[in-house]
Design a protein around this nucleic acid. Structure first.
Lengths: 198, 198, 198, 198
DNA sequence: CATGAATGAGGTTTCATTCAT
DNA sequence: GATGAATGAAACCTCATTCAT
């Protein structure tokens, strides 16, 4: 009566994790366009109906997973970064943290990229929530502009030119099943820096 | 018997154009994820069966249209560019031609971008064929590297850092229904140049 | 080229009639609550998808069929009725025409009654359109009230007290598989008349 | 161990009442066609599984509730009625009691009417049990016929012509959220009486 | 007693594609 | 070439019910 031999939470988590992994793996195997609840459920060894216990619908499923993935990938984005450091060092650290995370969670990254390219698959709320993760980045860039360390251009442009090329290369390496070298990373970051520095 | 002396090709072309426009418009209206042959046919005022006269299947339809769009958008990419000009001028002209084309064919660009993000929607052959359009670019970059005008990094990286940020901004402007200013364009190109110049 | 050995219209009508009959028969066999598109299609020997060629959705299917049934059953409602006749004769004729129709189309009547009891199954428009069929009835009642031939009560009440009991009995006879006798009909009509006459 | 000394029956009753109210309210809110155990349970703040503690299945749930509702609504049907009174007075009192009950229990009445229109939702036994509530009515009508106070027609017809119009109007008033006036009630009863009196 | 989790079966609807004309 | 009709397969989702705790 007082002892739960198996507790319900555990069961939940297992099923949820199964579903998440099924999405990551199937998405890569057959293409995210071709995912369906039935296929995901089958891969996860649960009934399609079970999916609807955890998620209201497909959009909710993708939204929730998207935020979870963003959390994972962005969780260490600002590790070893503090506002006392010079701008360039901060940026470098952030970008390297990002590369680290993408390489540590390749499947999750592919999923994230797919959603980023097809944002209509998740709810507006989730999308906006996801944007918030980078709040400090915006602040950092603003300061950089103010202090005339970097060029006075829109934050979007700066993000595009700092994260864009790195992500592009990371993706290519993922599909080629090769590993991005330290040198390549440094080179790319250096280029981004050259692009934005005042 | 009723014989149409009017050129049959004409009729064909009209139907094809209807179908293409239906795809562009519907893709934007209801999202490319939600396109179906039936919806496209309805919007184009043709029968679903008619679509299969022109295309073997959905993949063939997207593939063909993708190549057509790439042709349109890339057709003037090298206008006013010749190999005698200094590298930077050539690059500038190419990027400006690109911006011009994207702004001249916004709907086509959205479609192209959607396919680029979801390449499994078209055939491998079509995808690779599409890549060839930029052959001269590769050559130009190689020369630039050789002559030590630009940094010695992979072509992919250079493409990512030159076209990437521009495309990103162009897309944002499209959805915001605003127009990218001459200044913004120049600024972005300048940044790309700063990034890659030796 | 000019001769259609089998024309499409025919095919259509056959399928539609199959579907309608499937609804009438299945509704009685397994209960209208338990109808599903799949079951209806199976009974009609068509694919579920075929149903959606003829009807937008389930509601549209029921709405269309409801109006068709109302048309059939009400088509002769005013046969042999003309405004010169005394009120009571007109009413009598109308009610007898109604009884005739219900007995001639028992399955259709059961369907109509089911929809009347569950109007949320059809569209508002169809429901209102169905109400119009009885327009002359309202006019007749109004005249009857004006000329003080019948009591000055609401039209709804008069309809309820004239058609209600007849319908009730007709239904009972249908389920008992008995036939309402001439005498019973006359008796019931006489009672309704006693109820409403001034 | 934790023993609840508080009467278990109490807890039960609360849950049952919650379930019943959930049915009444949801039936009106979303339509009785669209009720499901899950929705009812949610509205009642109980688990779907709990419903199956109290009822064998959905049919049993509806059957039980139907009989309960019939009990409530018919409980005072014969209040102030005794067999010594003249027939018309008895009938009048019964009908007024009925109107009273319907107006006092509008939600329950809607449920009852829904089941009456769709009797296949409850068990045969429950339906027949429900019919018995009006036993005295049958007896009264029989006596009325015998004593030649009312016309010699079937009991069903008499019930249809006495209760039918009243119920029809009561329903209309319920959906129009208006209140049936004393006068309207009397008028309607008078009409019924005119219909059946010998 | 009470429950949240779980599910097979089945609901409505749309899909890409083919058929018959 | 062109079409509306037709369909098996599959999409998303909900159902009534049972299981494990």
């Amino acid at each position: 009566m007082f002892i739960y031999y198996r507790n319900m939470r555990t069961k939940d988590e297992n099923k949820i994790i199964s579903i998440h992994n099924a999405i990551f793996d199937l998405g890569i195997e057959i293409g995210y366009q071709n995912l369906s609840i039935a296929k995901i459920a089958k891969k996860a060894n649960v009934s399609p109906a079970t999916v609807y216990i955890y998620y209201k619908d497909k959009e909710d499923m993708f939204s929730t997973l998207y935020l979870k993935v963003k959390d994972i990938i962005d969780s260490n984005l600002f590790q070893n970064v503090n506002s006392e450091q010079p701008f360039k060092l901060q940026l470098e650290t952030i970008l390297k943290n990002h590369v680290q995370a993408i390489m540590a969670y390749p499947k999750e990254s592919v999923f994230m990229k797919y959603i980023n390219s097809n944002p209509s698959l998740i709810s507006k709320e989730a999308y906006e929530e996801g944007m918030k993760k980078a709040a400090y980045l915006y602040q950092l860039y603003e300061e950089g502009v103010e202090k005339q360390v970097i060029k006075n251009v829109s934050k979007e442009l700066i993000i595009a030119i700092t994260f864009g090329p790195l992500n592009h290369l990371l993706e290519q390496h993922y599909y080629a099943q090769t590993k991005m070298s330290e040198e390549e990373i440094n080179q790319t970051i250096e280029m981004s820096w050259d692009a934005i520095k005042a």
